[in-house]
Amino acid sequence: MNITLSEDQRDCLQELINVAMGQASDKLARYLETFVHLDVPYIELVGSDTLPLLFAQKYNGSSVSVVSQGFYGNDGIRGESLLVYRRDNAKEVASLLGYEPEEANENEQLADISSILTTTFLNGLAELISNQMSYSAPRLISSLNTSLDSHLEQLSFNWELALKVDISYQVTDYSFNCDMILLIPGEAIQNIQSVLDRILEEY
């Protein structure tokens, strides 16, 4: 499968994501009662064989927790959202969520905040492309005791190429940050391309 993203498609996707990020930041601020800053997204196509390496370079073997959540919408738009937390950050989540201490264990807090970040952003994005998303439950795929790249190396992917979107979240009041990595694999890339082309035509 030979897929490339045209410059127009990339710009269009970038713009859609920017708008969705703005909306998400606004909504999150209301729920979390603090300002959430989302960094400019980074969009690229990645091969399944290079993904473990990319993670290894980015997190450099440091211990991270990763929560995965699947999403699927109309027109064959589907993928997986990975939320990556570094060790120091995992502590801030309970107070950010407004939980009492001891009310939820660390894994549950991570699953909860992940689901909120992922679904808030993707619901907004879906609306912009006249779509509607459903989600699987968030699942902790690696905890602080296991390294992510070694976890990924054990997986065999059933796709060769994925559209990868990196967005980092920063909550200054809680000195909390995490990365959201959206992976839209295989055929779903072509499906999102036709959605982008449709929008470009209308524009």
Binding site: K27, L28, Y31, Y99, A111, S115, N123, A137, R139
Partner: peptide
């Protein structure tokens, strides 16, 4: 019911218009 926690979760559903989940593995 774990009232405080569940209310916070329900608030996210009402405020953000997003689904919320709870897994037996965590709770």
């Amino acid at each position: 019911l774990p009232e405080h926690w569940l209310k916070r979760k329900l608030q996210s559903v009402f405020t953000l218009n997003t689904p919320a989940f709870s897994s037996w593995e965590q709770r």
